[in-house]
Computed example of a mutant assay.
Amino acid sequence: MGIKLKHLEDQVVVITGATSGIGLSTARMAADRGARLVVSARNEDTLIQLVEELRQRGTEAVHAVADVGDPAQVHGIAETAFEHFGGFDTWINNAGVSVYGYMLDVPLEDHRKLFETNFWGVVHGSLEAARYLSTRTAGHGGAIINLGSLVSDRAIPIQGMYSASKHAIKGFTDALRMELEALGAPISVTLVKPASIATPYAEHAHNHLEQEPSLPPPLYEPSVVAKAILHCAVHPKRDIRAGGGSKAIAMLGDLAPRLTDRIMKGPMIDRQKSGHAEHRHAFALHEPGIDMRERGSYPHHVSTTSLYTQASMHPVITTAVVAGALFGLAALSRRR
């Protein structure tokens, strides 16, 4: 079934986890492209600040305070969209948090809270969106966009439960897509799998290590993911990777799983530690963050673009360019 999505400037877009990192970058980019926005997070003061900024950018925006682990609060996000805009067109399940530490050292309470946010938050948002968008007539579809990760395909140590939650998101998203297609619902369901993104992710993550956590390279700007997300809000797509590093790690895991295990249990553990002693006492797992930042601080180079992701978004153009280049090389070879 062909699903036709509206142009972004004609859409109402819901974004969870909108006050930080990828969510914040996506909200700002969507506002600049003319979308009307319903932004959600746990801290109301930060949301009010964000809505004011988005309005100054020239778009209509409202906020809904919600912990996505609570289905009643997620329903409240949808109600806000109905009250202010009469509904929504795209729902982006972005809210998430991680826990660093060996799983034997992490309290079960922290494991459960991570899953309530990362997995159940996606489930609550997806089902809320699907119930509404299923009522659309054919040819006037909507989009559900879920944030997975490179660890949806390849688990990493000392973020084991985060990896498990992202594996679960992939399974849920794939199953939901198939069921909605079988029902004939005019809904595009996309899984976005970012590589390491230079957000405040590590600063917000709960930590049970003696060192402050970090993210391993290669690192990408949050805008790389935001562009991929908004592309999928307009162009139905099954899944997309944000950052070529995501594809490289997934391929290595598929082709050489035991070798990848050895890499992960050695260098990958060290690369997730900053080398600085942990001194923080407040984390975003159980309490909302209050700083409105897209970027975190990392010592490694951060890429502003991803050729792999650009190619994924524009496969026809990329194929034509590659074919043209190969044709040119062949012609040059013949002349020589």
Rank of each mutant, 00 (worst) to 15 (best):
G2K: 03
E9F: 02
I15A: 08
A18L: 06
G21L: 11
I22Q: 07
G34A: 04
E44Y: 05
E44P: 00
T46F: 01
L50W: 09
Q56M: 09
Q56C: 03
V65N: 06
D67W: 04
V68Q: 07
A78L: 07
T90L: 04
N94I: 06
G101M: 03
G101V: 04
M103K: 07
D110C: 03
H111K: 10
L114T: 04
L114D: 05
F115S: 06
E116K: 12
T117Y: 01
G125Y: 01
S134W: 02
G139L: 06
A143W: 02
L147C: 10
L147H: 03
S149W: 12
R154S: 13
I169N: 04
G171L: 10
G171Y: 13
T173V: 13
E179W: 09
S188F: 09
S196C: 10
P200R: 12
P200K: 11
H204L: 12
N207R: 09
H208L: 11
P213D: 08
L230R: 06
C232I: 11
P236Q: 06
D239R: 11
I240T: 01
G243V: 10
S246T: 12
I249D: 05
P267N: 02
S274T: 05
G296N: 12
G296M: 11
S297Q: 14
V302C: 10
S303P: 00
S306W: 10
G328A: 14
